[in-house]
Design a protein around this nucleic acid. Structure first.
Lengths: 174, 174
DNA sequence: AAGACTGATTTCAATTTGCAACCGGTTGTG
DNA sequence: CACAACCGGTTGCAAATTGAAATCAGTCTT
């Protein structure tokens, strides 16, 4: 009865699914940057993922139920990637990861502002964000609060204030 | 001014430090299993890390300030690895990871019980655990509550109750 | 002195990564 | 209609990383 897993520990199983250098970067870009197409994920990310690695990760993430893929009706060749309930529930994890990174690494100021906001907002803000993500990706009812807009506004304010990293019309993810 | 990093995003920097299949497993074993020596980490883990990979990860983790290494006075060749404040602060992350894995993967019941307890205990329990970890690894004052003992007891109770995975005199980490 | 135990290192094959070029089909533009 | 730009990938290849097993020299126990 070999399941192909190293162990049944929930932390280990999570690590087997997401424990590499790119999977969570992709999910972060979809979640915070609302990148929904292959090319957007490929070229509009700070980190510069290679196209073959991106293709492989998207395949894996879809297979593992962390992303869903549908055809874009407006363009026969386009695919739209969406978060699933499972990946939406990764938000607290990403928030903690951002908070930890802000304390224990040397992040750029501009790219930290969202992590800071998300940490200060706490679980209440996370719930609001998750509700918004369900609206965007799972077509549930539109919530009143837009955390995405709050984060975006905060980022733009920091960038406008000084020279804190690269300026784009469409900002990078936190 | 190339820092050698892909980007200054706190999530990315955290991923550069911990985003691989083994680093967090090692920290988990030190944290929840109180494994402090090379051999303990090598042979008493469910997942079976290879010795060269373990040696490399320990080196990296020490270099990055997530573990500290001191000589064991009782044995000239022994080294004792300890958590640092930075890695102790990874506890909420590991707790979330366990909670997510419990919901979205198929973990074994016995190995899930600690994740469940840690999730139910919430931030209050995490703080108590972190205080205990500071006592164990950073020699701060002994706290009254021992979360480690609570988790251990719960695990042993589940194992005793039925055939839920392997039985060891020293149980694996959650 | 024997033997087990310590934290590793070595060797080698297999896998994964990063990089660049490329692909056939689709779309918007002149 | 011609054509360039764009679409989600694929291919080929070198370099780096990983995994498994054997090995090592110093240390402790008996």
């Amino acid at each position: 009865m070999d399941t192909g897993h190293r162990s049944g520990c929930p932390i280990n199983l999570t690590l087997e699914m997401l424990g590499d250098r790119w999977s969570l970067i992709v999910i972060r870009d979809v979640m915070f940057g609302n990148r929904r197409h292959f090319r957007e994920l490929l070229s509009r990310s700070e980190e510069g993922i290679a196209s073959n690695v991106l293709a492989d990760r998207l395949k894996r993430l879809v297979k593992n139920g962390l992303l869903s893929k549908v055809d874009d009706p407006s363009h026969k060749q386009k695919a739209i990637y969406s978060l699933t309930e499972a990946s939406i529930q990764l938000l607290p994890l990403l928030a903690h990861m951002g908070a930890w990174g802000r304390r224990h690494t040397r992040p750029s100021e501009a790219l930290s502002i969202r992590a800071e906001l998300l940490e200060k907002g706490g679980p209440e803000m996370w719930e609001a964000f998750m509700a918004e993500l369900r609206f965007i990706h799972l077509k549930t009812e539109r919530p009143t609060r837009s955390v995405l807009a709050e984060l975006q506004a905060a980022y733009l304010a920091v960038v406008a204030r000084g020279s804190h990293g690269p300026v784009h019309s469409e900002p990078p993810v936190p």
